[in-house]
Computed example of a mutant assay.
Amino acid sequence: MPLATEMFEGHAINRSAAERRAATLTARRSVKKLHQAAWLVNAIRCIDLTTLAGDDTAARVRRLCAKALNPLAPHIKEGLGLGDMRLTTGAVCVYPTMVRHAAEALEGSGVPVASVATGFPAGLMPLDLRLAEIRYAVTEGADEIDIVITREHVLTGNWQALHDEISAMREACGKAHMKAILATGDLQTLRNVYAASMVAMQAGADFIKTSTGKEGVNATLPVSLVMIRALRDYGAATGYRIGFKPAGGMKAAKEALAWQILMKEELGREWLNPDLFRFGASSMLGDIERQLEHHVTGRYAASSRHAIA
């Protein structure tokens, strides 16, 4: 849709209220025992299992894909009564040059390949090169593209430039889903986070995502709350549902519970599915598996007992 600044300009954000609401969510809502195990299994379905390191190799990507296809050890699945359930992560996320390796490893599995693009993580490249990188990743087999925005447009309030940039990226993605990374740790204010969320959705983003994972501050519950309220407001105004992806710094199973509680409380049960909600994480899966093994056996396993991913 065209840029509509009236949907976000003049919208004040009460930081202390947002922080208080986020802090009380996990304190007021608690899931234990079998219910907690079920929520952790659901979190696995929503993980974009990620490797974005400078020393990535084809072998590492293939190993990550193998883990995405079999995220839980067989004895844990059996202990949870999930022996016949097809359980995979939501996607595998890699750099553009690793997309082909991931696509080959996941071929026929139904697990999508996500690729970062547009000069990730800073995005400070000429626009034509960023668009070319998107097209390259799609050609290599990417089903989803995680783009990064130009933070300067947000910090200077140049909303038309931001809208035009994201619209061009949306067009370059073609049939691939586009997740717009806002890099909220760089945006300075929650009002900027709300405005950037709205502009990204107006420009055609299928998901809005908190962070690259490379900023000093990544996904936090108060920032996520503001983005989710933007999702809710946008949906009420247009009738369209846009997905949400927190990413960066999330390592513990309890964090998977906290963000799912946030989604259920603010948006409802249907937002706990991978078509509308994803985690950007890698080490979180290891802790989830460890917690589920404790649920099944009553013992915590050493990290060496779990597959490397």
Results as ranks from 00 to 15, higher is better:
70 N>H: 13
113 V>L: 08
259 W>M: 10
7 M>Y: 11
11 H>V: 14
35 H>A: 15
283 S>C: 09
104 E>R: 11
192 N>D: 05
96 P>K: 11
288 I>V: 15
80 L>T: 14
186 D>Y: 03
277 F>G: 07
248 G>Q: 03
304 S>E: 13
237 A>K: 14
32 K>L: 15
174 G>E: 13
6 E>N: 14
4 A>Y: 00
299 R>P: 00
96 P>Q: 12
245 K>E: 08
157 G>A: 03
228 I>A: 09
142 A>R: 01
20 R>K: 13
42 N>M: 06
256 A>Y: 01
10 G>S: 09
258 A>T: 08
124 L>N: 14
64 L>G: 07
258 A>D: 15
202 Q>K: 01
124 L>F: 08
284 M>N: 07
163 H>S: 02
292 L>W: 10
2 P>W: 07
301 A>Q: 10
183 A>N: 13
216 G>K: 11
131 L>D: 00
234 Y>M: 12
188 Q>S: 12
129 L>M: 14
97 T>F: 06
204 G>N: 10
137 A>R: 01
244 F>A: 07
77 K>N: 09
135 R>M: 07
88 T>K: 02
204 G>P: 01
163 H>V: 04
284 M>I: 08
114 A>P: 00
155 L>I: 11
262 L>W: 04
168 A>V: 04
118 T>S: 05
15 R>I: 11
152 E>A: 14
305 R>S: 13
285 L>W: 05
102 A>K: 06
217 V>W: 07
164 D>R: 03
235 G>I: 03
108 G>W: 00
186 D>G: 03
308 I>V: 13
228 I>D: 09
282 S>L: 11
150 T>W: 04
296 V>F: 12
252 A>M: 09
85 M>F: 15
271 W>N: 01
27 A>W: 08
118 T>D: 03
203 A>F: 01
16 S>Y: 00
210 T>V: 05
147 I>A: 09
91 A>P: 00
222 P>L: 10
198 M>A: 04
52 L>N: 02
37 A>L: 02
277 F>A: 06
142 A>Q: 01
309 A>L: 06
246 P>H: 07
156 T>H: 08
45 R>S: 09
74 P>C: 13
102 A>C: 10
163 H>I: 05
264 K>W: 03
225 L>T: 07
85 M>L: 15
265 E>C: 07
7 M>C: 02
37 A>M: 02
188 Q>P: 03
233 D>I: 05
272 L>K: 00
134 I>D: 01
167 S>C: 10
219 A>P: 12
243 G>Y: 02
69 L>N: 03
253 A>T: 04
90 G>C: 12
190 L>T: 05
101 H>M: 08
28 R>N: 15
195 A>W: 03
26 T>K: 14
9 E>Q: 14
9 E>H: 02
85 M>T: 15
176 A>H: 06
55 D>K: 08
283 S>G: 13
12 A>D: 11
291 Q>H: 04
20 R>L: 14
49 L>D: 02
214 K>M: 10
143 D>M: 01
177 H>K: 15
168 A>L: 14
149 I>G: 00
110 G>V: 00
299 R>T: 12
156 T>Y: 02
146 D>R: 02
86 R>M: 05
148 V>N: 02
305 R>V: 10
155 L>T: 07
52 L>M: 05
60 R>D: 15
151 R>P: 00
13 I>C: 07
225 L>Y: 08
284 M>T: 06
194 Y>I: 02
238 T>S: 13
120 F>M: 04
23 A>R: 02
230 A>F: 08
285 L>F: 06
294 H>P: 00
257 L>V: 14
234 Y>K: 11
